[in-house]
Write a protein that binds this DNA or RNA. Structure first.
Lengths: 248, 248
DNA sequence: ATAAAACATACAGAAACATGCAACAATAAA
DNA sequence: TTTATTGTTGCATGTTTCTGTATGTTTTAT
């Protein structure tokens, strides 16, 4: 049996069943498991499959999120770096959706041992890379535009959760008008998310500061952290500097 | 024996069997392995075959399985076209995940007015394109590899649903051993999905017919439709032709 | 917390490899 | 015909690749 031939058979197995165990492949191809492991490493290095503990899975099963076209990606990455410091092992975290949250997840170490609750399909998919994390999706009716789950089901499930931290992106934020949004369903879910966590962190690019949308999510004094790409002492953030709010 | 003649015989072997060992060729053509090696290098340089350690393989064989993204895409599209005819407006449909289901969703008209229940993040995302559809995601703990939600929560939610149709892809299917899979959590969810629907349709590429995985999902007679890329009267499908099962 | 499985690494023998060289044959030029 | 040239082949050589095993570590599951 040629090595290449063996690797083609492994690929066929992966493509057919989406997954394969090293032990099974070893028996099937009549070689040692170490040889299979070497093959899998090689195929993985060539991007033909994704290696996992015990075997390999199909690459098409793996979702990769491209960040190239994200608006203000540099600012959002800066925000994400700061926000990531709030997340520590063994925490229970409620996390939202959107491009800023997406940037945040990329900054979270992939070996984090935390429990994440989310209603965002994209967020959940991204968190699949974090092998040691516990990812819980709160089901419900999927809102097509925002790709998040909504409805009474979600709200009631959230009411049963007592998380350490809730991290959300924002659409509008204003010193007096508070956090605002334009999507009714999203607002209802966000309210429930905030209520379900001990502390809440909002991330926003400075461009959104002092802007107001139609629907209110919560007041500024109901939030605990505000994270922007600016340094905390920046003049634009002065109006948000209150005792109850930590500007990062 | 002329060199040219020998190389033609080598090519014949490669085209016939997709592979050949240097040692075999040496014995067969009664020349030293070094000569064979020189021939293979020459043929490889001319792009007639792909030289590998120990021999050579056919060029077509070489590229056939490297394209992981689109494995058997034609077959799967054909299956999807047939499966899509089962889906009609106002139906309640439980739908799984995987590449075949993904192909199916692409064949479903985007203005379908049906209600879809799913546990697959990718499936839910894809269904967001169907503006008039009602997409319900059944939440739970997300299994990292398969990117579906699992756990008691999902099972219990499914038990409350009475859908018209359940559509799933398969990993293993066998006339006696039934539908089988390799992932325990996925199996539990699939069982519940089948139970929650009046009828069940399984999609599979013919390559998977008669294959068996470790864990059983259900018997063949518990399913209502079997959809492959073959015509229903194909010999490979004979063993699956039972009164209770419509082969499409 | 513990045991089992999977893992990475290093090593060794075997097989396959490239290279240079000599022998030989076929061909071309003298 | 003889000689020179070229091409092919087998063999000796040292090198590389492949694979199984042994070792200790990491990861997973219980």
């Amino acid at each position: 049996m040629l090595k290449k031939e063996r690797q083609l058979l492994i690929m066929k197995q992966i493509n057919l069943h989406n997954r394969a165990l090293s032990s099974d492949l070893g028996i099937m191809l009549n070689v040692s498991e170490d040889t299979i492991r070497r093959d899998l490493n090689e195929l993985s290095a060539n991007g033909k499959l994704v290696k996992v503990h015990g075997g390999a899975i199909s690459k098409s099963y793996h979702f990769q999120h491209t960040d190239t076209e994200t608006y203000a990606i540099q600012e959002k990455t800066r925000i994400a770096q700061k926000a990531a410091t709030l997340i520590r092992n063994h925490m229970y975290i409620i996390i939202g959706g959107g491009t800023t949250v997406s940037a945040l997840i990329r900054q979270i170490p992939t070996d984090i041992q935390a429990t994440f609750f989310t209603v965002s399909l994209i967020t959940a998919l991204q968190l699949c890379k974090h092998t040691k994390a516990n990812v819980i999706f709160l089901g419900g009716t999927i809102a097509k535009n925002s790709q998040i789950s909504t409805g009474g089901e979600v709200i009631s499930k959230l009411s049963e959760i007592h998380a350490d931290l809730c991290i959300l992106g924002t659409n509008g934020i204003h010193p007096e008008k508070g956090i605002t949004d334009s999507d009714l369903e999203a607002v209802q879910v966000k309210k429930a998310m905030i209520k379900a966590a001990r502390e809440t962190a909002f991330m926003t690019i400075s461009e959104k500061l002092d802007s107001v949308e139609r629907l209110k999510v919560c007041n500024i004094d109901e939030t605990d952290y505000l994270i922007t790409e600016l340094t905390p002492d920046h003049p634009m953030l002065k109006a948000y500097q209150k005792d109850s709010l930590k500007v990062i």
